[in-house]
Amino acid sequence: MAAEGGSAIDPIHQFNIVEYGAVDLFGRHFAFTNSALYMLLGVGLIALVMIYGSRSSALVPGRMQTLAEMAYQFVAGMVRSSAGEAGMKFFPMVFSLFMFILILNIIGLIPYTFTVTSHIIVTVCLALIVFLTVLVVGFAKNGLGFFNLFLPSGVPWWTLPLVVPIEIISFLSRPISHSVRLFANMLAGHITLKVFGGFVVMLLGAGGWAIISPLPFVFIVGLMALELLVAFLQAYVFAMLTCMYINDALHPGH
């Protein structure tokens, strides 16, 4: 692949970070990159839809209002069903995370755009926000009772030396799996799309083999549909697990 050179065939090239401008403050390098640009774009788009959608609040909703209401009801239903009515306090956080990830995943599917969520630093930050929220809320609500999370009820006492470390590792693995899932799915999906796109180009340039070049192209169309589903599902799973972790923080103990 790399031997072919050129950015059209290199499947990793799409993840390059480009600096548009930078300031050096306090000995740190603060750069405005394409990643930051797409984050701003995503936030702007969400704000536009939500503000424009809730502007009229008509009894018979228009298109934008329907969209905004659907998004609200979907996330509210998710929070209520997996974190209970007490979890609705965290609705703003879950809604922001869900919309942010969903919009960035979908923007990234447009050719020639940048996918912010395909960088692990972004997903780790999002997962750490959730993790730290769970820790703070858990200790603030339950005090030391939060440690009940590591004490599953109904196991014989002599297995506790084995079960408690496993529970602790399981708890600490949450931000890892939370972030790696989103990052790996977006990265893998976009690389696959690029590789099959490269196949089309290579076959077109391979003389007689150009006859079968529509095959990978057809495959890309199918993959694109799958990636659209994955883009939504990953945002859904991320928000869903956020709700479940918040539920753990509100009600520790098994």
Binding site: I169, S170, S173, I176, S177, V180, R181, L229, L233, L241
Partner: peptide, 23 residues
Amino acid sequence: GRMMSLAFRMVSDLVGGILAGVG
């Protein structure tokens, strides 16, 4: 969709546990 999201969850939960332990 639900099954797929469950599958995503399980795979990354398994890998996440191993990674956390090794780390």
